[in-house]
Design a binder for these strands. Structure first.
Lengths: 214, 214
DNA sequence: ACCTGAACACCGTTCAAGT
DNA sequence: ACCTGAACACCGTTCAAGT
């Protein structure tokens, strides 16, 4: 599984062939079938192996906000370091078990803070969704490697083709020569957690009897 | 391109072979190479074709908040209706041109509301990231089809294997028999936009001279 | 239980050849 | 410019056979 992840890291997921893994670990392609049923099972194993690297423990036992922030940031950084692993995330095979304890602790802290269990679940899902989505969106906008300059050039070209139509993009493209997606992530996760903390009205679960003054 | 999207819709992206498309459109596999250079170009074309279906116009000319909410919701719904198209999103080939006008309008409205151009860019990226991430995360947690019950069973089994360790998950699993990811999306996008609206301090861009009272 | 080697059906793509 | 058909290298997987 480590060999497969390393091969994917170097040459993308399409470079992960049974023959490539076999020669890497010094075996025959068919010998691998002892350890997983088929290629889908291989992908699932790779995904769990990759997610096990997400650092959750360090932020534990603090506020749910710090925990969610740290977890989202860790997922973001991991997938950014290994962009070729991204397609593995889409492989639908249930939640990775390594996150269970962390998940439970976040829920506990949020319930202590007055959230309902369902709200806590939604908050957890939102934070993780934003984390994986940030990687996905960055990859889509930026492409692989250091093509930021190329993207900006493309953007400028598109804008130049229809003068006057995309004024804001034009001024943005001329101002920014290096766009760091870190800023997007930072604003996004902090805004999301701030919004969650503001606690939306929950009429069904807990009808507001008293109105707290701000 | 439509044929390819339809085939992917039915049988997943791995069912999209040049030979399958060829027989579908009534041609020879090699005839397709007139219309795209290789399979990566095919994927890029499919992605742009898919994204063109995102409905952006209806929410235009209103507040940036309504626009971002509608766009994120539309992306979420589109990818949910066509979960097999999801891997196309990860194909890194720059922003789809269909979103440019919408993008520009959001920027304009946000700048009018006092945001900097960079902040507006971050807000746009955050909302879109959350949208695609929600689909991705839902697919990862739920798997394909109506396997929610199976997932919950799996969750209960995992929890039962370590009694007392995952109390919150346990109570959650016993309470919820049908988990709708719509709630996660709703809470997430509203929290995110609420957080953005709250406008974080921007020391670099606009040093706060006067402190506004809450 | 674990490994091997030959074989099969299928894939993207090249090439020479046609209109 | 657009299409064809044969061929090539490669893929996941099956199968019969070994330890």
């Amino acid at each position: 599984m480590d060999s497969a992840l390393a091969i994917a890291d170097r040459g993308g997921l399409e470079a992960v062939t049974l023959r490539a893994i076999a020669t890497d670990v010094g075996a025959t392609p068919m010998a691998l079938y002892t350890y997983f049923a088929d290629k889908d099972a291989l992908y699932e194993g790779m995904r769990d192996r990759a997610f096990a690297r997400v650092k959750l423990a360090s932020a534990a036992r603090r506020s749910w906000r710090v925990m969610l922030d740290a977890a989202a940031r860790s997922v973001f950084q991991l997938m950014r370091e290994h962009p070729n692993w991204m397609p593995l995330v889409a492989h639908q095979s249930g939640p990775p078990t390594s996150a269970l304890a962390f998940f439970d602790e976040v829920l506990e802290l949020m319930v202590k803070d007055g959230f309902s269990l369902e709200e806590a679940l939604c908050a957890y899902g939102s934070a993780m969704s934003f984390a994986v989505g940030s990687v996905l969106f960055e990859q889509m906008m930026m492409g692989g490697g250091d093509v930021i300059a190329r993207r900006l050039a493309l953007l400028k070209e598109l804008v130049a083709r229809a003068p006057g139509r995309y004024d804001n993009i034009a001024s943005l493209a001329s101002k920014i020569d290096r766009w760091s997606f870190d800023d997007v992530f930072d604003l996004g996760i902090s805004s999301l957690l701030k919004g969650i903390e503001a606690r939306p009205v929950r009429p069904r679960l807990r009808p507001a009897r008293s109105l707290r003054a701000r």
